[in-house]
Structure formats: C-alpha cells, structure tokens
Design a protein around this nucleic acid. Sequence first.
DNA 1: ATGTGC
Length: 472
Amino acid sequence: MDLVEESPYRFRIDRRDPMRVPGVVFAAEALLPEIGADGSLEQVAAVATLPGIVDASFVMPDVHLGYGFPIGGVAATDVAAGGVVSPGGVGFDISCGVRLLTADLDLAGLRPRLDAVMDGLAEATPRGAGRGAAWHLAGRSDVDGVLRDGSRYAVQRGFGVERDLARCEDQGALGDADPGAVSDRAIERGAKQVGSLGSGNHFLEVQAVTEVYDQRVAEVFGLRPGQVCVMIHCGSRGLGHQICADYVRRMERAMPRYDIQVPDRQLACAPVSSPEGQAYLGAMAAAANYARANRQLLTHVARLVFRRVTGAGLDVVYDVSHNQAKIETHGVDGERRSLCVHRKGATRALPPGHPDLPAELGEVGQPVLIPGSMGTASYVLTGVSGAPAFASTCHGAGRVRSRKQAVRAERGQDPREQLVAQNIAVRGASRRGLAEEMPTAYKDIDAVVEATEGAGLCRKVARLVPIGVVKG
DNA sequence: ATGTGC
C-alpha cells in the first residue's frame, strides 16, 4: 500500500475508485515497518468506500488487522447523507474499554501487602471464558436495568457511589439503548457474566504512577508520582459478541435492499436511519451499558479487596470505551453535521471546554486511558483542541503478531517467569494465555503514544507501570 | 474479543 507522507506523523493513502475519501495513517516513520504487513491498510482503503463516509478513513499508530475494519480505526459517516453504521466498525467486543482507579496509597505503603492484595484480587475477580461473575442478574428487570442504565443501574443497586458516574463517559450509561433489539441468546449469554474479566488481552492491573508530564492536568485527574492505581480492561463478554454476530448477519441480508455494495462481506452495514441501522445502534448501546456495568462491578470487587487488605479507598479517574459507534456533531467542510463516528480500537479524546465533560474536567480535557501490553507501561492522556479524526486517539500498543505467532515465539520460554523477573506479580491465565499477550507480540507502547502526541491527537499526562496483574 | 478451533 502506497503511503504519502503529509507531515512527520501523518501519512495518506490516496483516494482511488471505489474509495469515496482518502485513507489517513497516523504513525511515526519508525513504526511503519510494523504497520500494514498484516493487510490492515487494505482494510483502511476498503472502509473508505462506505456510503456517507466523510473526511477520511483514519487509523491510529496501533493499527492491526480486524474483522472487516482495522483495529485502531476511526470512520465517520454523515447520517443525513445516507451514511451507514456497520457492526464490523465497532467490533465483536462492543464497548470494550478501560477504567482507571486511584488508591489513596503510595507504592511504598502497598509493597508489604502486595501479595495479600493480589491474592485477594485473584480470588474475587471472576475471569476466563464462561466462568461466572460477581453479579448474577435476577430476572428480566435486572437485565433491562443493566442494558438501559449501565453503571448507573449498578450504582443504584449498591455497587458503587454517585461520584463514580460523573467520571464515566456518558455519565455511566449510553442513551437510546434498546433491550428489545437484543436477542434472547445474547441475553442468555450475558446474564451470568456481569462483573467478570473475560480473557485475551483483558486484565485487572495494580499499577504505580512513575512519570507525570503535565502537573496541572494530573492534579485535576487525581494523579501524583508514586501513587498506586488500579486499571480495569474488559468489555461486554458473550453479550456483545452475540449482538455483533446477530447484526452482521442481519445487515448482510439487508444490504441489497439499500443497494449497498461493499468490497468485503465483513463490512456489512445499513444506513443509520434504516430500521436495521436503528436496531443495531439500540442493541449496541445496550451492550455498551452492559460493558460499563461490568467495569463498575469489577470496581466494586477491587474496592472490597483494597479496603480489607490495605484500608485504602479507590476513586474513579475515568471510564472510557474504545469499541463503539456514536452519533456526534462535528464540523465537516465548515458545516456542523450529525455523524455516526465508529471507533474500533480507538479512544474518544474530548478537548478542554467540551460540553460533554463534567465541570471539574472541563478546563483540562477528557482523561484518555491507554493500556500497554502485558508487563509494559500504560498511559493517561488528554484530548486537545483542533485535533483531527473527530476527537480520537489510539487505544493501546496494537498487535504485531497474531496470537498463534505469539505462542510460537514464546516456545521453550516461561512467560510467567519473565514477568516475575521484572518484579511483576501475576495471578491467573494459562501459560498459553500469557504467551499470547507477551510484549513481543505488540508494538512499543511508548512509540505508539509518542506518535499520537506528535500527530496532534492528544497530550501525555502520566505514565504508569504494572506492579501486579490479574489475567483472564 | 468469543460457551476460544473447520
């Protein structure tokens, strides 16, 4: 794929038929050799053919191959111009995202009790495929509560405090959720999984702040050097997965009716304004709320353990999704337009002064939470004014090897030993599960974050390192 | 990512 350098951190894929807009790759020169070998840039060009797409088909420096759409991608369609919504543009793990908690505790104070904290977290955190959850929903009214009101419902039921909600994207619940658009099968899969980590790259990590790049913003976020934090990375489990599968099938069948042709069946889509588009967005919002309730329950579990073992409380810095489509208003060619912004492996990053931010964050911008690969650093960033790509940035390190390749690369080595040698406590996960997530399988998170900052997508606020990790 | 794979 030919890339034209537009600036040091921005490369263009020129538009050619049937692309409607160009592709844009945000990356540093040094990352380019690791980008595109998997075919993800062909996916960028394919996404650019979607009806109603505006500006460009964007990807972040952590781009890699996904289902139809690349992971690390941002694509916005103009609702009034027949713009489409596509389940592949959100991904199977709907509203997968990250929540960061701060402990009123420093690393030195945690060290003597670290083993007890990790044992407590390991015992209390349901994880792995199909293994139960912290909260078993009792009947249809609980299910509807979670699907409609997300973290808000979890807090209402006693699994958190009101302040948590102010520090969540959408105040803890995405509007316009339609539980009626969610299949019985999806609900059946999800009912016993609220408050569970899942597997793959999902984790609950105890971290410590090692670097503060912006003192003023870090202070507003509640972060200081040496501070202990808890990062939770998980999604909508079997429920989101089932919804994605259901709607890919439904849209595949609907496309001829709207005379939509796509270069790849995995790009199945329907106009946002169509019955199929509306049903998907309603089901997707329900899954998004489920994922938020999931992170709220894991917050509750972590609080119980920290309180019991260390006496420390945990406050929410922020909770933000990196797999979601949202109807947002943005300027396009000097006009305010209603757009369906697909972010798949990309994080919303609101600039300072944005009306959707809670008052206490208004002056500094939205906290953006970026998990590194297992055993490497994570970042807290903030949104900046005038950024490209509809106020979005990266979501993590981004794979460079498939899971299978990662396991092969770790043959004859012990991933657990490698983490312990770095003084990182590990709980859970099979040898294979750990091998799939080793840093050699990912790009360098420091380089990815530097490229996003260089591209003017966000600004660094703080860097955190792992102390202990609970894996699915 | 996923009641993990044709």
